[in-house]
Design a protein around this nucleic acid. Structure first.
Lengths: 154, 154
DNA sequence: TGATAATGGTTGTATAGTACAACTATGAAA
DNA sequence: TTTCATAGTTGTACTATACAACCATTATCA
């Protein structure tokens, strides 16, 4: 049981707040490229990586509610980029796969994204890269764990 | 005009995607503490820091649309934590100030937040802290600039 | 085997956050 | 004084999100 001294590292606070901003930039402007949002691209990409992906896995990867997963996938199905296929072993489960069109769009957005990621990388000195990425990862994990351990405990 | 080679550093991609997750954790679960969301706390805190704050400044600080700023402030006014006051010099401008209750809640949430920030800091080795915070800042800025320079240019 | 529980998904409903466009009122400049 | 610019609010629309309720399945176990 820690004492409440009222001391907070403002650096941490403003980092978190800036993170919120940055993330907004990434997500908004709905169409990131090819009429696909950033999140939608992540989904396409996960499916592309695995070839076939269960909703459940996606739900885990995105770390959102099951229902949200469904709703994030919906537009991609509607646009004919992803298809739902009943699993062989378990007829409750649904497997996601890219359609022909899906593969095409994935590839296109990938090229698009190259510009974005390149622009990020271009702003981080080469010799610092590994260090920076590791540090960000460390910070992310710290925040993740800190928030799952309810912020207002004690 | 860069060539499109199709190469993307996946580290960067997953960092950005994890950032989205982390930010969600911070914001959701609407009431962070004392019935105030994280964003609302940031607003209270900015107003507290400055004593009096113009909507316009807040709009800049939060980096959201003017209308969004209005709507983020609204609930705080409704809850009687912030009051709107017409500026002396410019009767179009609105100055925000904490009410008595606002100062109280700000202080309470601040203590609450101490737990959260402390939990983050507790997961970052002491001697690495400065390094990590600087790195995160660098990364954030890189992403910010990269996304303002339209992702799909070239 | 048959009742009960667990699992995988979708739908209903509600909310925060967000933008853009249109508007109002005020102030500045010509 | 007319016209332009600024500060803020409101109308409207949409995404992302959660939680709860539900429907099929599949698994468990008595």
């Amino acid at each position: 049981m820690k004492k409440h001294t009222g001391y907070i590292n403002r650096d941490v606070l403003s980092l978190v707040s800036e993170l919120c901003q940055v993330v907004r930039f990434c997500r908004q402007d709905a169409t990131f490229c090819e009429d696909v949002t950033f999140t939608q691209f992540l989904i396409l990409d996960e499916v592309a990586k695995k070839g076939e992906l269960k909703m459940l896995d996606l739900h885990q990867i995105l770390a959102v509610d099951k229902s949200t997963t469904t709703r994030l996938v919906n537009p991609l199905v509607r646009q004919g980029l992803i298809e739902r296929k009943m699993s062989d072993h378990d007829s409750r489960a649904v497997n996601l796969r890219l359609t022909q069109a899906g593969r095409k769009v994935h590839k296109k957005v990938w090229l698009c994204l190259e510009g974005f990621v390149g622009a990020i990388e271009g702003r981080i000195p080469e010799r610092k890269k590994k260090l920076v990425y590791d540090a960000v990862k460390l910070f992310i994990d710290a925040v993740k764990k800190a928030s799952s351990a309810c912020p207002c405990s004690e």
